[in-house]
């Protein structure tokens, strides 16, 4: 009787061990399979690049001629349509700038807008570029430094997909904390294009000289 009880106890323990082992085996199989499937799916996607987040202020365009055909996209290239005004106005140097920029649905590229000002313009208007001492030494101290080619970014949008527009851009202070004072500035909309399907950054960029007015 005692032997029977002992045997039963051993059988019970054995059963628990088998169940635990089965569970561990099953869990590892599931994890391995999931990772393998995930990996193969990533490979299938081919040249997919990191996603740039869509600008929260990008609004759909109410296009009257929405039947307009998409632009012909050259093989391996890109096509973008830009509708814009070359004026931007902001109440303050670190406020919201009012702009007009549309990326109609006939484009096959999403875009990101940077608002840039050349070092030359900043030096003329502010007497400095607004870089931190460290950056100033690195960039402005370089032998081939050109104040007309180097620029500071004072605003940058998120992604504006085809069929969307942006009417505002948030201006930021320069890296040393300087806020653009009241005045008119020669600025540039610098447009980065990204393939709407693969997110690949285009090797073609666009820039549009504009007039930026800070009211106060």
């Amino acid at each position: 009787m005692e032997n029977d009880n002992k045997k039963k106890s051993i059988d019970k323990k054995l059963m628990i061990i088998i169940i635990v082992l089965c569970f561990i085996t099953f869990s590892s199989t599931v994890v391995t399979a999931t990772l393998l499937i995930k990996n193969s799916m990533q490979k299938d996607k081919g040249n997919v690049y990191p996603v740039v987040s869509q600008d929260p202020d990008a609004e759909p365009i109410e296009e009257e001629g929405s039947s307009e055909e998409p632009l012909t996209n050259p093989d391996g290239g890109g096509a973008v349509s830009l509708i814009y005004s070359n004026q931007a106005t902001a109440s303050e140097g670190d406020g919201i700038a009012t702009i007009l920029f549309q990326n109609p649905s006939k484009s096959n590229q999403s875009i990101v807008i940077q608002l840039q000002i050349t070092d030359k313009e900043l030096i003329e208007k502010l007497g400095k570029t607004g870089r931190t001492d460290k950056e100033k030494a690195k960039i402005e101290g370089a032998e081939d430094y050109d104040s007309e080619k180097n620029r500071m970014i004072i605003a940058e949008s998120g992604l504006i997909p085809p069929g969307h527009k942006l009417t505002t851009l948030e201006l930021k202070a320069l890296p040393d904390g300087t806020v653009l004072p009241k005045g008119n500035y020669n600025a540039v909309f610098y447009i980065l294009a990204y393939d709407k399907d693969t997110n690949e950054r285009a090797v073609v960029n666009m820039q549009i000289p504009i007039s930026l007015t800070i009211l106060e």
Binding site: L71, T72, N73, P74, D75, G76, G77, G78, A79, V80, S81, L82, I83, Y84, S85, N86, K106, A202, V203, V204, M206, I208
Partner: peptide, 12 residues
Amino acid sequence: TIYSVDITWGSM
């Protein structure tokens, strides 16, 4: 003045 410009490019 409304600027509207289309730009297309090959594979480069």
